[in-house]
């Protein structure tokens, strides 16, 4: 009854209050950091990858952010764990929103941050293992130039 007035779904609140995948991976195979503390969200994704199967063995996040940012990070990790690199690359922000059973429209940017964080971490892995020669700069918005508008722009 009260839920329909609540800005967040049960799934968002569950993942926010009890995230399963937060933490740091020592000696990760790939790391991706996106966002900017000025805007209010920073997400760091750590990957451990099975070199033979190219499957994500472990994935963890650290997030400075709001309820939706933390829940999105946790949902992303859940979606990516056990997937191959090529499968994981296809994870969209919409998949994160679906996993969370919805996000308030004003918070969709948090799911975008999640999807980008994973892409960036995978890129880091591919760069380190020589699969790509250059990292794209698409997700690099942590240079401090942000004026606090990413919440809208994201």
């Amino acid at each position: 009854m009260a839920e329909q007035f609540n800005a967040y779904t049960k799934e968002v609140l569950k993942r926010f209050t009890n995230p399963k995948h937060f933490g740091e991976i020592k000696n990760p195979d790939g790391v991706g950091q996106v966002g900017n503390p000025v805007c209010g969200d920073v997400m760091k994704i750590y990957l451990k990858i099975d070199k033979k199967t190219e499957k994500i063995k472990d994935i963890k996040f650290q997030t400075f952010g709001c309820v939706s940012a933390i829940a999105s990070s946790d949902a992303l990790c859940e979606l990516a764990k056990g997937k191959t690199i090529s499968e994981a690359k296809k994870i969209t922000n919409k998949a994160i929103v679906d996993k969370l059973e919805g996000l308030p429209s004003i918070k969709i940017h948090c799911s975008v941050l999640g999807a980008n964080g994973l892409k960036k971490a995978i890129e880091d892995y591919e760069f380190k293992t020589g699969k790509i020669s250059k990292k794209s700069e698409r997700y690099d918005d942590e240079d401090g130039s942000c004026e606090g508008n990413c919440a809208i722009a994201g």
């Binding site: 609140l13 209050t17 209010g40 952010g65 309820v67 940012a69 606090g148 919440a151």
Partner: peptide, 30 residues
């Protein structure tokens, strides 16, 4: 080092109502 709205969200989960001056607060993004 932590986001105000996340603190607010957590407090709410314990039945404590608070308010943030953060860019993330739902009314205004400023």
């Amino acid at each position: 080092n932590i986001e105000g709205e996340a603190i607010g969200g957590f407090l709410d989960s314990y039945g404590i109502s608070s308010s943030t001056g953060s860019a993330c607060s739902s009314h205004s993004l400023e």
